[in-house]
Design a protein around this nucleic acid. Sequence first.
DNA 1: AAGTTGAGTGCACAGTCGTACACTGACTAG
DNA 2: CTAGTCAGTGTACGACTGTGCACTCAACTT
Lengths: 225, 225
Amino acid sequence: MGHAAIASTLLDVSAAEEPAGPVSRQERKQRTRQALLDAALDLLADRSFASLSLREVAKGAGIVPTAFYRHFSSMEELGVALVEETTRTLRGMLRGARTEQRGYGGMIRASVHTLHRHVREHEDHFRFVTRERYAGPGAVSRAIAVEMRMFSSDLALDLARFDPLRTWPTEDLHLLADLIVTAMLGTVAELLDIRPGDTAADERTLVAAEKRLRMILLGVPHWQP
Amino acid sequence: MGHAAIASTLLDVSAAEEPAGPVSRQERKQRTRQALLDAALDLLADRSFASLSLREVAKGAGIVPTAFYRHFSSMEELGVALVEETTRTLRGMLRGARTEQRGYGGMIRASVHTLHRHVREHEDHFRFVTRERYAGPGAVSRAIAVEMRMFSSDLALDLARFDPLRTWPTEDLHLLADLIVTAMLGTVAELLDIRPGDTAADERTLVAAEKRLRMILLGVPHWQP
DNA sequence: AAGTTGAGTGCACAGTCGTACACTGACTAG
DNA sequence: CTAGTCAGTGTACGACTGTGCACTCAACTT
């Protein structure tokens, strides 16, 4: 629970905690905002976004319901902010994966590995995105769709640097990228379904993910319009 | 008016309609049950299952909220029933697709075509399934997962009759089947996002779907453990 | 030093929610 | 013909929802 989430209660004896940074006005506001996001993500661990109430999130962040509106005009807006937060994580992952690339084999292994690491490191974010991706109309799903398209485009750009793919039409390149992204997302969903301790299941899932990617890429050298 | 079930509006002038079959006790019950399922599916057209209330569904079916419990002990149970209903649709589709099979090319074309037809014929069912598939824990998502596994297994069985695949270990066969099912589901999601009139977009999506399948299957002849 | 701003509070409201309870009356089994 | 079953009704409850309103009081501006 939000360990006093900034939001001073009447008696906040919160003595130490943190180097007690500068408590400027906007700084405090931003902290509460973050507390709201954190609380939402926390509650989202085993529920869908649609079933999340403004009051719950506010309570989780340690503020009164009406104060919620000082930060977001609606739950939907908070949801979009959550998507943006997740995006930063994803971009970081892509950047990391971009550095090391040799042939196909090495790239597949490395990609799956970094994906695994990031999923385990930010389970809540990934769970949120995979859950809400197809959750129906609404700003959240739309924001996710946009983000996924960007992600896929980035991947297509990266793929274009490989030898047999250099000459592909961009359309086919995007198709391949979508295929890979979709397969990866499936892997993410599988990983998130594994119960916490089971490292053997993790390993099995990763092997399956590598195989899946290899299957997809096997056809690449034989492709023509 | 209550007994009228089948979604009687205030002014239900339902005079004729149907050959007015035998109105036995259990027959009436089953009809109301179906009315509940229909009402739920109808409301689900643009909302998530989690945001669906028992009262809404009951009202949609033309009964009073407490009467809901004569048919389902909870909304979750209704959700599972909805999954089962959808399953019948899917099985019908598989059976249809199984009949005609030549080489890869023909099969791909035929599969995508039948998928398209069935999606358009049962949009609400498909929307429901794609939405709730990853909607989090809960009986509905679990039921969908089970059904998807069965579906994938059936496909694997069918695939095993093709020449290069005959010798594959079942594990790899399941991997391939999963890949195909996932790709198809992606296509379903795309189809459902197309706004009603746009047949050109339909066509584009189908072409992309065929390409995607071809890409996956291209690697098949070159696969080894 | 005096005044303004705005994040957070507390109350109050009208709805909606799931569900408990006692009921009615058309079908059905004896 | 009679007694029983049970799908559907109507009321009533306590809990929870989003949000409007008037407020406080620390941080900022002038």
